[in-house]
Design a protein around this nucleic acid. Structure first.
Lengths: 244, 244
DNA sequence: CGGTAGGTTGACTAGGATCAACTTTGGTGG
DNA sequence: CCACCAAAGTTGATCCTAGTCAACCTACCG
């Protein structure tokens, strides 16, 4: 998938894009897309590829993360748990997303692969110097951090003030909006019922019941466990109470 | 409170700290504390003081914010509402906190003063150039953004997975931790019951009932409506289920 | 004094959790 | 190919927490 990072750059000039970055499918959508070649090269120098198996963690809640990463393939969850085991998913990271923080504090959440996942990882400790040398990287991180704040705030409104039905409808709409698919086509649902429940602050039974109810009302169809079809987009939007 | 910004700087040398910044009570705790004098001066040049009356908004949900600010005195809330009026507070900003984003997107939340509030405001549009000229400002914003992400994630766990009692106990503990007060002393409670409910994703009645229950159990005392005393810190910690 | 905003308390309700049984799906090895 | 098994999902009955609705209290202000 990647070319060997030790392969000599064609031409070795200061501004040549690293070969594996040139081959990277998510480069333009990620952090790496908005930075000049110099900065990209610096990033490439300290980054390496890593594969996480399903269920494997990149960052543990309570530990000081030593790695940050940019997702290539797969899906990871950010989640926090209470000591008695109750767990709340805090968000998902999709390809091109950046995961991890900069500070030295123990992470208040864990990062775990939900599917086989491939990412570019970087040692967290190298970031401050990197940002100082290449302010564009800092700027790109800042923009992403504000985007993430925005998403989290929207999700808090959902968790604090909406009904189970609104939450489920809202989640389906978000998945539908993410994959740019023709209306009426099946949308892939990369989460199990349990994972949807964790994300929505509900139980698995409630998620299942609400999905069944929407199916019964002909708002959606459930061709199999890992996809759904929107039959009545207007009704779904109504159920979601305008939480996009 | 501030000196007139048009007053000539004593000496006008490039590195003199602006007079009103020297007099600023929250400078060291805020964004402005971690940046070199050059950057501080640049900030000072575009900033001005603003007072918000109780209930007055700095940023409206749905509008593109034209101002960002650093709090001096007072208390503001960040909150988002659904179209039917349900409202969820997303956080509070205390003196020294930075409010506002950088992007041009319409704000997904509003910023409103809960008390008479004084802040330094800056035109949002000036930030990108400012950050480019003074990367330290960008870095300081980045650190603050990650701190805020952390806070929000902790709050999401609260909203998604904890009981009303745990939420109320957790809030009281946070207020107690904020003001460095001797144990046993009354802690100021700057929110009305309604505002606590908005913040905790509960109703005013539930908040009132839980407070009364804790008072009945001699965990706290409620000398008046705007303060409380922790009588049994261990019991309160227990009730908060280790959500600090 | 009366009015109002904020707060408390009680009775009742409903939405979602819990507990339990059962079904479907998908993978593995004989 | 099928039998078997574990994991995931569904459905039903019941319970309980927090929401709703309503009455009432209290402090403060003109």
């Amino acid at each position: 998938m990647y070319m060997d990072r030790h392969q000599p750059d064609l031409g070795a000039a200061a501004w040549t894009m690293p070969a594996r970055c040139a081959a990277c499918g998510v480069r333009m959508a990620s952090l790496c897309g908005g930075i000049p070649a110099r900065a990209l090269e610096a990033l490439n120098r300290i980054g390496r590829k890593r594969v996480l198996r399903r269920g494997e963690a990149l960052i543990w809640q309570g530990d000081v993360a030593e790695q940050v990463g940019i997702l290539h393939h797969g899906l990871v969850k950010l989640s926090a748990a209470l000591e008695d085991g109750r767990e709340q998913m805090l968000g998902l990271a999709f390809p091109a997303d950046f995961v991890g923080g900069i500070g030295e504090r123990p992470s208040s959440y864990g990062v775990t692969a939900l599917t086989e996942t491939e990412l570019c990882i970087f040692p967290r400790g190298a970031l401050p110097a990197l940002i100082e040398a290449h302010p564009e990287i800092g700027h790109a991180l800042l923009m992403r951090a504000y985007d993430e704040l925005d998403q989290l705030r929207r999700w808090m409104l959902l968790l604090g003030r909406t009904s189970a039905e609104e939450r489920v409808a809202s989640l389906l709409r978000q998945f539908a909006a993410r994959g740019t698919c023709p209306p009426g086509a099946p949308v892939s649902l990369p989460l199990t019922r349990q994972q949807m429940a964790e994300l929505l602050g509900l139980t698995i039974e409630t998620v299942s019941r609400k999905l069944t109810a929407m199916k019964r009302e002909r708002v959606i169809a459930l061709p199999d466990l890992r996809s759904f079809v929107i039959l009545d987009a207007a009704a779904l939007a109504m159920l979601a109470a305008d939480t996009p």
